[in-house]
């Protein structure tokens, strides 16, 4: 495997739902290398999204360590973790979560603006990214004027804005019909082919089958970690 971008070392995370404690992640250790395309699959409530939040420095483990580019994410202060998410990680959410009042291009520009990229440069890169996801003609449209698939493409362009080392996607096709989901799956494949490291949490078999590695979870544990047949064959 290539040099690890991410490394998890005996990570545990619990949270409360009402009075009940949910042990969402129970001692997960794994490595994800640069350029990998990993799908995390498993039944609802098995801890996939919690694991993704830990990978993305949105959440901190109760025990164990998460290393991104060799840095212990759990030891970072809020400001450092925020800066890490801004510059090194791209997020794609199930419900797109674009700002409805901004145009497609402004949504893509938002993380660049926060990172201090100049107005001209970020506008040019936003246009480039929208063209990459096939929405060059829709840059001035606001999210309510776009279809679900188009909104998810804008969200993907936004995730790529600051050239992240890693893109994390949580059920990115969960709100889309099968045909649009396939288009997004194809876009993810292209992204990975172009060198982006991808970790996708999904129930979508099409999307999971596009990944080069699949991590199966159950009850907060990794129960199987396998390479796609094509990748395994290539390695042999």
């Amino acid at each position: 495997m290539s040099e690890p971008v991410l490394r998890l070392d005996s990570v545990e995370r619990s949270y409360h739902m009402g009075s009940e404690e949910v042990r969402a992640v129970r001692g997960v250790s794994l490595e994800i290398g640069a350029g990998e395309y990993v799908a995390i699959v498993g039944p609802s409530g098995c801890g996939k999204s919690t694991l993704l939040n830990l990978l993305g420095a949105i959440d901190r483990p109760d025990r164990g360590h998460v290393y991104l580019d060799g840095r212990d994410v759990g030891a970072l202060g809020d400001g450092e973790a925020t800066a890490l998410r801004l510059r090194r990680i791209g997020f794609v959410f199930q419900r797109f979560h674009l700002l409805a009042a901004l145009s497609a291009r402004e949504n893509v520009e938002l993380p660049m603006s926060e990172a201090g990229v100049g107005r001209t440069e970020r506008a040019a890169r936003a246009r480039e990214l929208l063209a990459y996801v096939g929405l060059a003609a829709r840059e001035k449209h606001r999210p309510p004027q776009l279809s679900g698939g188009e909104q998810q493409r804008v969200a993907i362009a936004r995730a790529l804005a600051n050239r992240p080392a890693l893109v994390l996607a949580d059920e990115p096709t969960g709100e889309l019909d099968a045909r649009t989901g396939s288009e997004i799956a194809a876009l993810f494949r292209r992204l990975n082919d172009d060198g982006t490291t991808l970790v996708v949490v999904t129930h979508d078999e099409d999307l999971a089958s596009a990944a080069k590695r699949t991590i199966h979870m159950r009850d907060g544990l990794v129960v199987r970690d396998e390479l796609a047949a094509s990748v395994a064959a290539a390695q042999r």
């Binding site: 949105i58 925020t82 998410r85 801004l86 997020f91 938002l110 993380p111 926060e114």
Partner: peptide, 15 residues
């Protein structure tokens, strides 16, 4: 929810 997403994608608290 919007603020949580903004924080998740790296928008600073001060912003």
């Amino acid at each position: 929810g919007e603020f949580a997403v903004l924080r998740a994608i790296g928008i600073a608290r001060r912003t």
